[in-house]
Simulated assay, not measured.
Amino acid sequence: MTDSLDGTVALVTGASSGIGQAAALDLARHGARVALVARRTDRLEELAGQIGSEVGADALTLTADVTDREQAQRAVAQAAEHFGRLDTVVNNAGVMLLGPAVDAPLEEWERMVQLNVTGLLYVAHASLPHLLRAAEAGPRQVADLVNISSVAGRVARNGSAVYNATKHAVGAFSEGLRQEVARRHVRVSLVEPGAVATELASHNRPEVQEGMNRRFEGMERMEAEDIAEAISFVVTRRRRVAVNEVLVRPTEQEG
Score class of each variant (00 low, 15 high):
2 T>S: 13
3 D>N: 14
3 D>P: 07
5 L>N: 02
16 S>L: 01
21 Q>P: 04
24 A>R: 03
33 R>G: 04
36 L>Q: 04
45 E>L: 12
45 E>T: 14
52 G>N: 10
58 D>C: 03
59 A>E: 12
68 D>Q: 11
70 E>N: 04
71 Q>I: 01
76 V>P: 01
76 V>G: 00
88 T>C: 10
91 N>P: 12
94 G>N: 04
98 L>T: 09
99 G>P: 00
102 V>F: 13
115 L>V: 14
117 V>R: 05
118 T>Y: 08
118 T>C: 02
121 L>H: 12
123 V>K: 07
125 H>P: 07
131 L>M: 03
133 R>Q: 15
134 A>V: 04
135 A>M: 09
141 Q>I: 12
141 Q>F: 13
145 L>C: 10
145 L>V: 06
146 V>T: 11
146 V>Q: 11
156 A>W: 11
158 N>W: 10
173 F>W: 10
175 E>K: 14
175 E>Q: 13
179 Q>H: 06
181 V>N: 08
181 V>E: 06
185 H>S: 14
187 R>Y: 05
194 G>L: 06
195 A>C: 00
200 L>E: 01
203 H>C: 12
208 V>I: 12
220 E>S: 14
224 A>P: 09
225 E>D: 08
230 A>E: 07
236 T>Y: 06
238 R>S: 14
240 R>N: 08
241 V>H: 06
243 V>D: 05
245 E>V: 09
247 L>P: 13
248 V>R: 00
